[in-house]
Design a binder for these strands. Structure first.
Lengths: 239, 239
DNA sequence: CGTTACATTGATTAATGTCAAGTGGTGTGG
DNA sequence: CCACACCACTTGACATTAATCAATGTAACG
């Protein structure tokens, strides 16, 4: 039984169908400890997750030990969309995670029978694609310091999704629930380079750290100039 | 009036609705000369393209002149999916291009009313996302030579989409309709590095060039080892 | 405390970028 | 038909960035 309402349920508001009722009756709240995998590589794509709490890293691993983190997922984000029988990526809980787990088949049935819901879902998919395109631009074109600045804006817009009072332009506090290695693997850098980039931003008084996993943006303009990401203050809107 | 049937029409086979009929009655075959833009940055997202012939580069430009090519689109590929009012990317014809142009509104109406079509469309979107994830892995983790090898496999699987006799594992000929700068901007490298990577692959007798825009793979195993992409011989399937 | 894991900093190396020169094909005009 | 100019591409020399290797620092935990 679902205790809390997830983003998927929110998206379904207004629509009604037997398939929707079935989908939500099948949703189960699941808890994952830090380090646990929500989805493993090569696993059948039988489940779909709606994250309620915590942070998940979605990663693709190379045979030779290389790892690329594709996204960090937090509250109000989805996990498990796939066009193939088996999932090529690995989803790991970076913190304790709560998510609603739906059977994919039930979701597919809703998408096939409830067009208004299908449309909203397609918009979400498109946003995920646009976010991936941002990521490609960042690692293809930006320097190490720029990538880190861009990453801070990425996290900032991610955490704004779930801010109870809505996105606020002035928020300057950023939580970094992941390790430096996770950040490095997201940005296509090494831990040392990430660390040096943070130090460089500290030295030029653009950010400060309370501890190594939470920082404060002192000069948001400078971060924007470096990271160049359109965040929620722009026309982009929330997912 | 549509002369040739595009991929979108192929996807609609089996389904029938007034909205579909309207969509296809509104489709117009358009021709673009080399260098012409199908979509410009900031343009309203009013049209959706189904490429019949030629190659299109989809790119995101930075303010400072940096450019990241997000994908090369050929026959049977779509262009124009967006979650926002204005399109953030630039689509340029690299060769003479023929595409069917549909009004987005008509497409949206079909997607909202013809669920079986909507589902197929969602699968296509998901594949595009997976391809973008491949791209992120490539530029985040691979070296210059590996990126170029991966790029050859990317082109190979793209051209296989439209091979009249279907994908063939043995095909070794690769057409490179784009310039070295386009390749560099796709892979997050410079033209010089791309050129050196090609030379290095020539020297080790992995590929040969007929001319600078078409090459032959001599040692496909080596290219796969370097580029590590699952292409159409794997479980990935065609879009 | 001592151990462990993660983060930072420093010194050096390797890879890619930058700048510059040279090559080769293509098209144009004398 | 040839000379020239113009591109795009290639190659070489050098500069810069980030990776690698190696300490050192720091916070959490037994």
């Amino acid at each position: 039984m679902i205790v809390r309402k997830g983003h998927l349920a929110e998206m379904a508001e207004g629509a009604e169908s037997a398939e929707l009722d079935f989908l939500f009756s099948e949703g189960r709240e699941r808890h994952f400890v830090q380090g646990e995998h929500l989805i493993t590589e090569g696993e059948r794509t039988d489940y779909f997750y709606d994250v309620l709490d915590g942070t998940v890293a979605l990663a693709r691993n190379g045979r030779d030990g290389r790892r690329q983190i594709l996204s960090f997922l937090g509250a109000r984000q989805f996990l498990g969309a796939s066009s193939t029988e088996r999932y090529p990526n690995l989803a790991t809980a970076l913190t304790p995670v709560t998510a609603i787990c739906y059977p994919r088949a039930a979701l597919e049935r809703v998408l096939e029978t409830t067009p208004s819901f299908g449309s909203k879902f397609r918009v979400v998919l498109t946003r995920i694609l646009e976010s991936s395109h941002d990521h490609v631009y960042t690692i293809g074109q930006r320097s190490a310091v720029e990538r880190v600045a861009s990453f801070l804006l990425y996290l900032r817009s991610n955490q704004a999704r779930f801010d109870p009072v809505g996105p606020r332009d002035k928020s300057t506090h950023i939580e970094l629930p992941m390790t430096r290695l996770d950040i490095a693997d997201f940005l296509g850098l090494t831990i040392e380079t990430v660390s040096r980039a943070f130090s460089s931003l500290k030295r030029s008084e653009v950010i400060t750290f309370k501890d190594s996993h939470s920082c404060e943006i002192i000069n948001l303009e400078k971060i924007r100039e470096l990271g160049g990401r359109e965040d929620f203050t722009e026309h982009r809107g929330r997912a």
